[in-house]
Design a protein around this nucleic acid. Structure first.
Ligand SMILES: NC(=O)c1ccc[n+]([C@@H]2O[C@H](COP(=O)([O-])OP(=O)(O)OC[C@H]3O[C@@H](n4cnc5c(N)ncnc54)[C@H](O)[C@@H]3O)[C@@H](O)[C@H]2O)c1
Ligand SMILES: NC(=O)c1ccc[n+]([C@@H]2O[C@H](COP(=O)([O-])OP(=O)(O)OC[C@H]3O[C@@H](n4cnc5c(N)ncnc54)[C@H](O)[C@@H]3O)[C@@H](O)[C@H]2O)c1
Lengths: 213, 213
DNA sequence: TAACATATGTGAATTTAATAACATAAACGG
DNA sequence: CCGTTTATGTTATTAAATTCACATATGTTA
């Protein structure tokens, strides 16, 4: 099997294609072309085909792709042919929203624990989850085989929480605190920064205003 | 003034530099080098200088950058030398978290209204905001000069909410619903997809497992 | 079964972004 | 006031991503 580096942008789009295919499938669509996928998610048809080509040949020339099959392939590629246990660190407003979001479950993510260090929050229920004391993390992480941690604590606590995750065998981190965290190279880490996208918008609005002066 | 296209990746990093500079400033740091910024946010020093070079010369050779000045410049570039009124559409879990998030305020964003169509939510308070009926949007948008809309409603309602925003003069949209929205070309729109980053993590974990087989 | 229509898969061309290398300017010390 | 140090700004180079163009394979129709 030829292994060449897959651009992260390709993986990003694959995730988007995958969800689009699920929607098509739910709507009873059985066949789809690269052009229709492209149209549906807002990229070029060539891009769709190029992205898929990193992983194999999934379509039929002259016909297109079988929706169910391609959906399964994309899930497999993304590692979603298995369930992933994850921990939400921080049961604040964002942590709460993440816990209640059904979209994760649909994609095979299982929220195996929510953790906080505020005594007034520990023990409270969020859906069918109970907020756990931070100290319980090592035990629960091991028992539930938690490999992914989501950081939803304030900036000031983010690094220590990251350290705790790493120390307890977590392999990947999704960080919502707007700060660069220090973790060993072998840990996969991605930041989600909600302000950045807003500021791209204001940049563009401002830039546009400058252009029209 | 030479106007050349600025890569979106550059704008993204600029937003991150900007926040890092604010932190340095709060900590009393007065001068910083491209290397220190790079270290602090996780990019290369050359990248920092290249990004800044799109907009002018802000440093002193042999010395570095004045933190306060560079912070102001980055804010100005991002359009954050003014306050922006925005509307949160959807007072669900995510909308609630966004409303209470203080980080937006700090950067000059003013949440001028939260809107929902669920009668049981309308009138409820979120911090010092009161959830408004969707029907109130046109009036409030005009009065408050809302130019940015944030979509935090379910997928099924996202397109109609986007249409409402556009119809009422909103110029930019931040969309949290994982679906491609149809808006006129002149509207700035960006999606924030929280699942995608998680799936990049599982892709990489799976890929790594495959490598080591 | 041959000709045609269609849509994939892919190598080449193009565009875009990131990195490296270096010339330039400021500060400092003797 | 000159040489040295330092870190910027910019040009050159490399790398990466996207788009283009077309050969290839499939299904359909006459
Ligand atoms: N709410 C948003 O919309 C939003 C938007 C962008 C970024 N963020 C970021 O997400 C993070 C969380 O935001 P939030 O609005 O949910 O904040 P929040 O204050 O509502 O919640 C933070 C939670 O973390 C807990 N906590 C603090 N230190 C902890 C520790 N050491 N271990 C475990 N738990 C700890 C607190 O008790 C609290 O429950 C912040 O870093 C914030 O900058 C939030
Ligand atoms: N909560 C999360 O962590 C999370 C994560 C990723 C994506 N999202 C996306 O964000 C969006 C909101 O998620 P949520 O968890 O807050 O959902 P939610 O169900 O808690 O909230 C949605 C809110 O939108 C309101 N609403 C529905 N139709 C409306 C309309 N036409 N006009 C105005 N308001 C309307 C509902 O009354 C509800 O209050 C969804 O599209 C979801 O896929 C959420």
């Amino acid at each position: 099997m030829k292994t060449l580096r897959v651009p992260e942008a390709t993986v990003t789009r694959l995730s988007i294609y995958s969800r689009f295919l699920e929607r098509l499938d739910r709507n009873g669509v059985t066949t789809v072309s690269s052009g229709e996928i492209a149209e549906g998610v807002g990229v070029s048809p060539a891009q769709v085909r190029k992205d898929l080509a990193y992983f194999g040949e999934f379509g039929t020339r002259g016909v297109g792709y079988n929706v169910k099959d391609l959906m399964k392939y994309t899930l497999k590629i993304l590692g979603l042919d298995q369930s992933w246990s994850l921990a939400i660190m921080g049961a604040g407003n964002l942590g709460f929203a993440l816990c209640t979001y059904r979209g994760f479950n649909v994609r095979g993510f299982n929220i195996a624990g929510v953790f906080d260090n505020d005594p007034t929050r520990i023990g409270k229920r969020i859906g069918n989850l109970e907020v756990q004391a931070l100290e319980k993390f090592p035990e629960i992480a091991e028992r539930e085989n938690i490999r992914i941690g989501v950081i939803a604590v304030p900036i000031s606590a983010a690094q220590e929480v990251a350290d705790l995750l790493v120390k307890n065998g977590v392999e990947a981190i999704l960080n919502f605190a707007p700060v660069a965290l220090n973790v060993p190279d072998e840990i996969e880490i991605r930041n989600v920064d909600l302000s950045v996208k807003l500021e791209i918008l204001t940049f563009n609005l401002g830039f546009r205003a400058a252009q029209s002066l």
